[in-house]
């Protein structure tokens, strides 16, 4: 049971076949379709969370329209990008962020998202 992309062949909106793209998240490759947001690529790959709150609690998409900032990621070195609003581009190197004190995220514990 997981989130997914409606297959183009079965899409009532008459989508043409997907144009594939590939991004990496912490070095791990994820396949997506051109037009998806970074959040969309991750969700459709079955990944529901990619950020950690101060206690380490997992976070992913909540509001989906750029208001809650739960889904922040680092994209090609730019911190604090809302994954629900940023279109994935082929080759994007995404790294996850954490605000937990024991995290390996160098900017996560202090100032990174303030």
């Amino acid at each position: 049971m997981s989130p997914r992309l409606v297959p183009a062949s079965a899409d009532a909106a008459g989508r043409r076949p997907d144009v594939p793209l590939r991004i990496t998240v912490d070095g791990v490759p994820y396949n997506g379709a051109a037009g998806q947001t970074i959040a969309g690529v991750l969700l459709a790959a079955g990944r529901r969370s990619w950020r950690n709150g101060p206690s380490g609690a997992p976070r992913g998409v909540f509001c989906g329209i750029g208001a809650c900032f739960d889904c922040l990621v680092t994209v090609n070195g730019d911190r604090d990008v809302r994954a629900c609003r940023r279109r994935a581009a082929d080759g994007d190197a995404v790294t996850t962020q954490s605000r937990a004190a024991d995290s390996a995220d160098p900017a996560g514990t202090d100032g990174g998202e303030r």
Partner: peptide
């Protein structure tokens, strides 16, 4: 705050805006 809880707007934005459905 568990992953998998979405606002209704998020579910709709993902379904209408990029054809991603948030769950089974």
């Amino acid at each position: 705050d568990l992953p998998g809880v979405f606002t209704a707007g998020a579910a709709q934005a993902l379904a209408k805006g990029e054809r991603v459905v948030v769950g089974d």
